[in-house]
Design a protein around this nucleic acid. Sequence first.
DNA 1: CGCTATTTGTTCAGCGATTGAATTATTTGC
DNA 2: GCAAATAATTCAATCGCTGAACAAATAGCG
Lengths: 412, 412
Amino acid sequence: MSLTHAPAGAVRQGSLRELNLALVLGRIAAADRPPSRADLATATGLTRATVSAVVEDLLGGQLVRESDPAPRSGAGRPARGLVLAEQGPAGLGLEVNVDYLAVCVVDLAGQVRHRTVHRADLRPVAPADALAHLVEMAGAARDDAAVQGLTLVGAALAVPGLVDDAGLVRLAPNLGWSDVPVPALLAEHPPLIEQVPGVPALTVDNEANLAALGELHSQPPGPTSFLHISGEVGIGAGIVLDGALFRGVRGWSGEIGHLPVHPEGRPCRCGGQGCLEQYAGQEAIVSAAGLARAELPADTATARLAELAEAGDADALRALHDAGTALGVAVAGVVNLLDLDTVVLGGGYAALAPWLCPPVLAEIDARVLTAAWSPVTVRPSTLGAEAAAVGAAGSVARRIIAQPAGWLARSG
Amino acid sequence: MSLTHAPAGAVRQGSLRELNLALVLGRIAAADRPPSRADLATATGLTRATVSAVVEDLLGGQLVRESDPAPRSGAGRPARGLVLAEQGPAGLGLEVNVDYLAVCVVDLAGQVRHRTVHRADLRPVAPADALAHLVEMAGAARDDAAVQGLTLVGAALAVPGLVDDAGLVRLAPNLGWSDVPVPALLAEHPPLIEQVPGVPALTVDNEANLAALGELHSQPPGPTSFLHISGEVGIGAGIVLDGALFRGVRGWSGEIGHLPVHPEGRPCRCGGQGCLEQYAGQEAIVSAAGLARAELPADTATARLAELAEAGDADALRALHDAGTALGVAVAGVVNLLDLDTVVLGGGYAALAPWLCPPVLAEIDARVLTAAWSPVTVRPSTLGAEAAAVGAAGSVARRIIAQPAGWLARSG
DNA sequence: CGCTATTTGTTCAGCGATTGAATTATTTGC
DNA sequence: GCAAATAATTCAATCGCTGAACAAATAGCG
């Protein structure tokens, strides 16, 4: 479940090449314009000879393609630019959520090359049936990917709940799942992906974590440390530190929804009192705004709320302000604790950001000790709906970039 | 200010040896009994030939010493054990606090080989004078270390305040410091340490961070991820994740004292309201217990409080229970957010742990969603007073272990 | 049009570090 | 006293990076 790429173990002769493959490929991926071999040599500190050898491996492995270079003025032999290949390995992203199933394919460059969403209320559906439907969608995605010259090398599944290291979904309260052995259930279906050393065939993770990863890898590149908050029925946070998702000791980090904001306040289903979720969760906002929550799909309620706020409805505005203040109290605590300078509002919050950001910022300014020296940015997510599925697929693609040796070592 | 040791840049031929030196030395440091070369080979995955070569380098560089091996039953040539050298490089730890100056020397094995404490009220003393006194103490420490065969290779200074990347103390409220350029002030004195590539001559850091590092490297080895809370006049936290201190984007993480626990409660000097510090800071506890806080030295007040609680004083017990509850609310939030399974109470809290732990645990159990699946441990720090100074010196010693190549590349 | 300066990319001998097998060293058990 | 077992070292082979020389391709200039 972790995406580490530091050489923890023995460093053998071949590790050297593995590390430099990753180094060069990472540079190509991070560059905003196609770099030449010479650019890469100066950027990485390797010699041009080494870079040439490494690039040859990458070209042979369909990870990189030559392109028109960045135009340059002056004399000299023209460079050949290098970009990530549009054909080659790709990641499969899966998402089970309360009111939809989503599948997508993301290539090395982070482009979404395929996307399918099936809207339905998943709460009454048995986990095995939901996953079976997802596999069916994934099969079509695999075929579409193959037509585009893409090979699926791994899958990641986003779930709105707590997942352990083995991929067991311990608890997904809003989905009604509990102790669902996802890997075992998916193993019943024929495999869709090509096994690649170093890339797990399937990882299962919290949707908030994967949405945060999607934000991290979105274009254009943003900060490498931030807090991503997914405001749905529950409130989850993905913590990205130095370009890596922080998962906690058991992978259950990010339960920001149960940060106490009014310790003697409303009781929460978690057993505590005054949790953030009770004041800034979707249900809390909707009911505070006086909206009947008969309408099931969460995005409908959110859209309605945004409409009302746009129209200047006093109840809606007050509800959003109160929720933003509660959110701000929690976020201020997190920022004090972790010293982050960027907070991204995702999920249902993205559409409500215009009304949530001001009170959140006000609380941060009032409560964060270091805000005086350097400001904290609060902004909506750039990814749209199904951000977790895109992030899931992207996490697989990023793993290839972080560890290209495994892909290169496969059959071809 | 960071202690990263992943090969971020180019991996050249020599990096290979550097990495394996660190790998082998790290294993020797982590082992609980002196490992043989053969043990190291199986543990690291390197061949015995390589391990022998690496160990020869380490022996030649005074980083490692041969010793009696762990006893083994059965036939075969007896192994020769390897332990960290008692003579060789060592770290210098410095601490300026409200009511004392401390200096210590820690060797590679984490042993405190020298320790001096000077008790005095530092608040009326000018920063330059305080540092001058510290340098004087450090000079004596250096001489004592030299007699013991130790060479100081770096220094770390612990300060109760916010420090930026350049070592500028932005704000140390309880000390009355503000924008103190520590490196510049120390540069006026003759250098005490031997420059070693890769080891900064001086780092300045928050005392809570360094105390947490001290806890991390204390013997016997504890968990590699935990929250260390230093309860002094202010409340600081050091966050250790996977054996590394998390410093935040600007190095100002850990301001747990300003987590809101009663958002509409008492105003705090930070400008916010209801911060933890107002309910669980040393002054808050002492005054809630009805103790006149005329007595200056913080440890005296803490000791008196512990005495009273021991004797069953109702006011003291109530004050401690209330403080523990407030602390528990904040800690529960942190645990929910970061999914940590260990919380260490340090600084002034260590002595009060018997009364603080129960209410803290109660709040955690009530508020942490995942506590049902795996319990959270709350315990006092194993380090005594001046933990930050010991942690500071230890952080230098650990850096040698993480990057032995620099030391080996020096003159000798 | 041809020459030079300039930059890119490749080729190749040299070298450092790891490997794996063979060898030496040292003890226990029979 | 000898065989078995384990530890550690030696040494040729190999892998991958380096540095320098070389080939390729273009702009500028007379």
